[in-house]
Design a protein around this nucleic acid. Structure first.
Length: 156
DNA sequence: GCCAACGTTGGC
DNA sequence: GCCAACGTTGGC
């Protein structure tokens, strides 16, 4: 009996790395997350095979762009050790890594981008606490319930 | 480009 | 431990 699948949303700026980039590379180490809550979700919550919605942020039409899946267990983000990386963290060491990531594998693009504007009209069903639309929330990695997942996909 | 909201840092 | 200052996020 397999464990129940979990669902997540991960934000990305399409100018930096969007769903088209993920499609091209296939699988990508989701590096650069430097928020403890987001890290904890990746490190402690994610399991290989979990579903991921890829959200495009900080762009002309923000919204959900595609579906991916968690493709590895969590492991240390290499960029924290790289002094030439913008994600370098001088307080991190290989003995005591601070930042973790998972590999994310492309599954498919949505038939159309589901705009944030439209998602907001379903707040009553998604719940006030849904991190994507919760006031002031800037989390870039957060859980999605199966009910939320299905509702969002039904908008496609 | 603006700016509100947030998370982190560091002085005290 | 408080909290002001700062840097970042991300919609608009």
């Amino acid at each position: 009996m397999s464990k129940p699948k979990r669902y997540w949303m991960m934000k990305s700026e399409p100018d930096a790395f969007g769903i088209d980039d993920l499609e091209r590379v296939g699988t990508e180490p989701w590096n650069g997350v430097r928020n403890y809550q987001a890290r904890n979700f990746m490190r402690d919550g994610m399991r290989e095979g979990d579903g991921v919605m890829i959200y495009h942020s900080n762009c002309k039409v923000p919204g959900i762009a595609g579906i991916a899946r968690v493709a590895s267990a969590a492991y240390p983000d290499e960029t924290q050790f790289d002094a030439t990386s913008k994600y370098f963290d001088e307080k991190a060491s290989r003995e005591q890594p601070r930042w973790f990531l998972v590999d994310v594998a492309f599954e498919r693009k949505l038939k159309r981008l589901i705009p944030l504007e439209e998602i907001k009209t379903h707040t009553d069903q998604l719940g006030e606490g849904f991190a994507l639309t919760a006031k002031g929330s800037r989390l870039s990695v957060f859980p999605v319930t199966s009910a939320q997942w299905e509702l969002l996909l039904s908008l496609e």
